[in-house]
């Protein structure tokens, strides 16, 4: 034996899990959705993704090196996730300069102001996304039609999302059954053949990602399933009350960013509760808020806002919702 014997408190072995493994696992789970977005939106999707990822890395590096004066830790993969998620949340024809602003807000305000990975209250990508949505509403809501590599990057033919069609139509007083003719079939919605943000359209790809993450135990089922369940139940009740005014549960789940939000954004480790009980409360909150914003709010889409609002409640949930203790004295 060449060196001195090591002494440390137990346990003496580690499971081998690491931050990188989890982060790159999430990235791997996002690949199907990424591929689908490339297929549907062509070059535009590739440009947007590359810009978002590169600028997230750049801003993280600059801020941690020159503002926080610490050694930048880029290899943990969290900037990559933020970059891809930001790209997933914007239209595939968004100009580069807007993406840069989004990345700066996401990393700069959403993450680094709180002290970097592990300390942020809000999901960084969503902070960037919502900032862009409010600042550049026109660019952020003119979605290109999914025409594959025929989709031009900047001056593409644009169309509304199914949710926007319904919202506008209902405002004009048209009955839902009439409006549904303008909506692609459920199969098309599931496969992602509709207008929308880059990563949110292909439900099938997102579900593949969910299965992978559950299988690899990167996330637990609690958050995504409670969100989807709550949305299904709540919208189902509304639909049964008045089928002409409220769309059904399947429509709500397959359209907009619900699957993307429930699977990849709400499950962000840092900004979600720690205990399973807390996760369920958080999931129910997001589900309810999403439907309320979609159905009764001014915006056609509400997932981002719902997640951000519930992010703000996470510290409170963590303090007041304790996991089930072994041998807890029952009152």
């Amino acid at each position: 034996m060449n060196s001195k014997v090591l002494v440390a408190p137990s346990p003496h072995v580690h499971g081998g899990d690491s931050i990188q493994k989890n982060m790159y696992g999430v990235v791997f789970a996002m690949l199907p959705a990424l591929v689908f977005s490339f297929v549907y939106f062509g070059m535009g999707a590739i440009i947007v993704t590359l810009t978002a990822v590169a600028s997230c890395y750049l801003f993280e590096f600059l801020i941690s090196k020159y503002l926080l004066k610490k050694v930048p830790t880029l290899n943990d993969g969290s900037a990559l996730i933020t970059g891809i998620l930001l790209a997933f949340n914007v239209p595939a024809n968004l100009p580069i300069w807007i993406i840069l602003i989004g990345a700066l807000v996401a990393i700069g305000i959403g993450k680094m102001t709180f002290g970097g990975l592990g300390n942020n209250v809000f999901n960084p990508a969503l902070v960037g996304r919502v900032f862009l949505l409010i600042s550049f509403p026109v660019q952020m809501t003119s979605w290109p039609k999914p025409l594959g590599f025929n989709t031009a990057y900047l001056d593409a033919e644009t169309g509304a999302t199914p949710l926007a069609i319904i919202k506008e139509g209902l405002k004009k007083g048209e009955p839902l059954s009439q409006l549904m003719h303008d909506i692609p079939s459920n199969m098309d919605l599931f496969m992602g053949n509709m207008g929308g943000s880059m990563g949110e359209i292909a439900g099938v790809a997102l579900l593949l990602g969910l299965l992978y993450m559950l299988f690899k135990k990167i996330i637990s089922w609690h958050i995504p399933l409670t969100i989807l369940g709550t949305v299904a139940i709540f919208s189902g009740i509304l639909h049964m009350a008045n089928p002409e005014a409220y769309a059904g549960p399947l429509f709500h789940i397959l359209t907009g960013g619900l699957l993307l939000g429930a699977i990849f954004m709400a499950t962000d480790y840092v900004t979600s509760p720690m205990s399973h009980k807390g996760m369920i409360i958080y999931g129910i909150g997001i589900g309810l808020l999403t439907v309320i914003i979609r159905v009764f709010g001014a915006y056609p889409e509400g997932v981002s806002f719902a997640i951000l609002i519930m992010n703000a409640f996470v510290p409170l949930i963590n303090v007041y919702v304790k996991p089930k203790r072994f041998g807890e004295k029952r009152k």
Binding site: S3, K4, V5, L6, V7, A8, P9
Partner: peptide, 9 residues
């Protein structure tokens, strides 16, 4: 002289 190496927190 050190006889072992501490590796804990």
């Amino acid at each position: 002289p050190k006889t072992n190496q501490y590796d804990g927190a």
